[in-house]
Amino acid sequence: MSFNLSVGLPHYLLVAAMLFCFGLYGVFSKKNAIAVLMSLELMLNAVNINLVAFNRFLFNKPIDVQGVKHYLLAGHVSAIFVIVVAAAEVAVGLALVITMYRNRLSTNVDELDWLKW
């Protein structure tokens, strides 16, 4: 077959980049604060894909530790931490949005402009 469909690191990275940039667009352009939070989640996911992909394709050889074979899964562990932080962020962020909504009856980010001049 002339058509090589072999999947490698660049493909995953490209997917992650697209995900990240969609998230970025959402963060920049959405009025609704919850939409902004969702976009942030997309970006964090993109980062996670990158971490896992690098771990999978560049550090996939087991090492020998005291006679036992171990894979160095630092990427996975980092992704777990990112998930932890993302969960915390979502919780706090949504709480903030709800507080804001309660005080202002609005979740529009572009109305949050009192911090100027």
Binding site: L24, F28, S29, D110, D113, K116, W117
Partner: peptide, 17 residues
């Protein structure tokens, strides 16, 4: 230049990024 200070987080984020 004071117009640059929109007070909107999204604009700040965009500029920084």
């Amino acid at each position: 230049f004071r117009r640059a200070q929109t007070g909107q987080l999204q604009v700040y984020a965009m500029v920084i990024f």
